[in-house]
């Protein structure tokens, strides 16, 4: 990419958030240079939405530092107009039509693109005159995506943007996201559970676990960060050695284990010799394994109940 400015970006340091006794974020620290597409991943209730809300000033952090382009976003209009966060369950005034909603958007987003909005409205076949309360789940998601991309906000947050969207509409979303990103480079932060489907859009992934950033790396590295070995239990155990097992399943004499770490040449040799199957875990399998591992080893389990 050509337009990454080292001065610009999101700086998070020790960000915490509690709801009463419930601590969701226990110290989130990360530097996210501007101009990239980030994937914010992790199990349900791990605090992805909470973190996005804090960054966007929609709710207040309990502690820590958040800076956007060097400035605190809290009640800072100059920063906030550069942020767009359409919530997963965004609701509008029930009697507003899509036409009404589109008409008020430029007031919030100085870089609003009517052209992008109209192109996406047509592509998603959104009915301009239907009142927002009558929109289906999929239509509301399509509207949220349309508003997010048309906002042209320097920092756009997409939180589970495609509930209810079919495969065709999701593909359309991926294409439009990349088209917008190519034409007007900016920062996107995308949370999703359809990880393997969306992984190729991302340049950098952050995996939240247990209230902190457990993994922060480029997407190719994340994908090589764990592997799945499958075969007879003794040989599988011998190959794993003392490496960390994130998840394990067995079926009779056969064990399948997701292991943290890179596959080495020794592993390939042992797998060949002992008739084990060996493959990199997909990003989705990696994230799921971290979540499962955390559920079964977690000393802060109550925090997991928070949505």
């Amino acid at each position: 990419m050509t337009t990454i400015d080292p001065e610009r970006g999101i700086h998070l340091c020790g960000v915490t958030k509690s709801f009463g006794d419930n601590t969701v974020l226990r110290g989130v620290t990360a530097d996210l240079p501007a101009g990239r597409i980030y994937g914010l991943l992790g199990a349900n209730g791990v605090g992805k939405t909470t973190l996005m809300s804090l960054i966007c000033g929609h709710s207040f952090r309990s502690g820590g530092t958040i800076l956007i382009d060097g400035q605190d976003p809290t009640e800072n209009a100059a920063v906030l107009e550069n942020l767009c966060f359409v919530h997963e369950d965004q609701r509008y005034n029930d009697n507003f039509t899509i036409a009404h909603i589109l008409a008020i958007m430029p007031a919030f987003y100085p870089h609003w693109s009517e052209q992008t909005a109209q192109r996406l409205i047509r592509a998603f076949r959104l009915p301009m005159k239907t009142k927002s309360k009558k929109l289906s789940r999929g239509q509301r998601s399509a509207l949220a995506i349309t508003l997010s991309l048309a906002s042209r906000a320097a920092y756009t947050f997409l939180d589970e943007p495609y509930l209810g969207l079919d495969a065709t509409s999701r593909t359309l979303f991926y294409e439009e996201l990349l088209r917008e990103y190519a034409a007007h480079p900016r920062t996107f932060i995308l949370s999703t559970h359809l990880i393997d489907e969306a992984a190729e859009l991302m340049e950098v992934v952050l995996i939240l676990d247990d209230g902190v950033v457990a993994v922060h790396t480029d997407v190719d590295e994340a994908r090589r960060s764990s592997f799945i070995v499958r075969g007879r239990a003794p040989e599988v155990r011998s190959l794993i050695g003392d490496r960390e097992v994130l998840a394990e399943r067995s079926m009779g004499a056969v064990v399948s284990a997701t292991v943290r770490g890179h596959v080495t040449d020794d592993d390939r040799y042992a797998a060949h010799r002992d008739h084990l199957s060996l493959e990199d875990a997909s990003l989705q399998e990696y994230v799921a394994a971290i979540g499962i591992h955390s559920l079964t080893h977690d000393s802060h389990a109550p925090a997991k109940d928070v949505a």
Binding site: M1, R36, I37, T171, Y174, E175, L178, R179, Y181, A182, E200, L201, M202, E203, D218, V219, D220
Partner: peptide
């Protein structure tokens, strides 16, 4: 890079690599 990114639906950084 941009054409590859849109064609394969991948991040431009991936296409660039």
């Amino acid at each position: 890079t941009t054409e590859l990114s849109l064609h394969y639906r991948v991040n431009p950084a991936t296409a660039g690599k």
